[in-house]
Design a protein around this nucleic acid. Structure first.
Lengths: 231, 231
DNA sequence: TATTAAATCTCGCGG
DNA sequence: CCGCGAGGTTTAATA
């Protein structure tokens, strides 16, 4: 990994064209030749970048560029798509290289998967007398998150989201339409369950006879893990 | 901006919990206190991070941590959400600080916006005799990308995508449903236009009487700008 | 290998 | 300020 702090301008051409005016920035060159251009603000997304696989070549500036103050030109081209990033470097303030080795990688504890597991265990949250049929119930157009039966034995299809949006309602609608054509399952009712349900999604869902259920993640998992575990 | 190359392990707890085992990594501290943890590979996304607004505090390790080789503990807490990132630092290989100033920011030439402008100018691509009514035609549930009229004067609603997927068809369907309730507009037909249309999206669209139109971006904009402009 | 859905999404625009 | 849509989305899972 190479770290360069330099005054530079940047041009990108590929799926869009973009330009960064002259300013001091961090240029981060990774071991695979990929490049990130970061400013001292914003979030984790670089101002501009080139993803691997790509190759970086350093070019001597031509006469016009040199007279404009350019000391080096970095050209990074994507191996497959011909996307290109050109960094015109004026002054270099810092330049260092470091050998990091291979990273063991991130271990993460998911969100929706965890919610699904918890709701399957606490299936009573759907209402009294509900029983679990199975998680990831397979249909021709994809898996329904949870299939259950209500107190009367009727099928209930549950679509789970962290944030309930319109497309989640559309997804559940397609499942319900399909499942209700199956005489062994019909009639199937729908439950749209999420930590947070957008008003428009709720309106659309209820308009289609789909019940909305807001889940309290913290209450479902208890307070014995998560942030608490760090202390 | 502060750049630190250090052997460290990282723990995050917030919207999920995650852990990074001990390894050498780049710690990038931005001026607003936000932190990025990068390895020497992957794409532009850090292994772990904390977005602003947040505060970083450096803590002395306790006895257990010290005996495990921890020399410093960085605790970064999000100001609003209580998300937390804890970096346990063992060895520091590099540490430097740089004043970058405020970045002038990225100037970009969009994709869908550009496509929309081009299609509005080349409205004949919809078919002979078509005329433009307007771009971003406002409805109660959002703007229709392009509203036009066909040779017979009937309304045509166009939904534009770079990649045509099922959700784009759903979006257009909602618009059509609404617009066809308006006697001043009805009957409104739909055109789903994209650089690339997924087979499932095409099937769904045609099943609903929506016409599909594949756009050749390069042909529409000509070959006189874009990458060519860089040389 | 292609497709699909999630993301600690991020980012920008409009109401 | 919030909601909505797009992204050079990226990324992971899965058929």
């Amino acid at each position: 990994m190479r770290l360069v702090i330099a005054t530079c301008s940047v041009d990108y051409a590929g799926r869009l064209t973009a330009h960064l005016p002259l300013a001091k920035r961090l240029l981060l060159v990774k071991g695979d030749g990929s490049l990130l251009v970061h400013s001292d603000g914003g979030s984790y997304k670089p101002l501009n970048w080139m993803s691997p696989p790509c190759t970086l070549s350093i070019i001597e500036p031509d006469e016009v560029q040199r007279s404009a103050g350019v000391s080096e030109v970095w050209k990074v081209t994507h191996t497959k798509t011909a996307d290109m990033l050109v960094v015109s470097i004026h002054d270099i303030e810092h330049d260092s290289a470091h050998d990091l080795g291979v990273d063991p990688g991130l271990q993460k504890d998911g969100v929706e998967a965890h919610l699904q597991k918890l709701l399957a265990e606490q299936i009573h949250l759907l209402g009294d007398g509900h029983t679990l049929v199975r998680r990831e119930y397979m249909t021709a157009i994809g898996p329904v998150d949870i299939l259950a039966r209500d107190a009367s034995g009727a099928s209930v299809a549950v679509e789970l989201k962290r944030r309930g949006d319109i497309d989640g309602v559309e997804q559940l609608t397609r499942y319900l339409e399909l499942m209700n054509r199956d005489p062994l399952l019909a009639p199937v009712t729908g439950v749209f369950a999420a930590q947070e349900i957008k008003p428009q999604a709720r309106t659309l869902a209820e308009d289609r006879g789909i019940r909305c259920l807001v889940l309290d993640y913290d209450a479902m998992r208890g307070i014995d893990d998560g942030i608490a575990r760090l202390f």
